[in-house]
């Protein structure tokens, strides 16, 4: 999938949650992506994050990090 499309989607989700306190917003975005994105989409986002996360806004960047951390937690 085109990464710019996934970045746009993640940023859109972050735009919704940005009115919430930061920690809640980050968790909200991460939870949403975990619940509704197919694993291959999440894997691509994670790969993009590890490559620097170009284009991701601050909240979606933090959410991608959160997803990666949770994925690596046994």
């Amino acid at each position: 999938m085109e990464i710019k499309h996934l970045v746009h989607m993640a940023n859109q989700i972050a735009d919704f949650f940005k009115s919430y306190p930061e920690a809640e917003a980050i968790e909200g975005v991460a939870t949403h992506i975990r619940q509704f994105w197919d694993p291959r989409m999440r894997a691509q986002l994670a790969k993009h994050f590890e490559a620097g996360g170009d284009g991701l806004n601050a909240i979606s960047l933090a959410a991608a990090k959160r997803l990666l951390q949770k994925a690596s937690t046994p």
């Binding site: 999938m1 499309h5 197919d38 694993p39 291959r40």
Partner: peptide, 18 residues
Amino acid sequence: AEPGLRIPNMFDAALEGS
């Protein structure tokens, strides 16, 4: 246990080859 693809995601995944 994992969510699947939504319709627009299916189109994207098709163009990607998966």
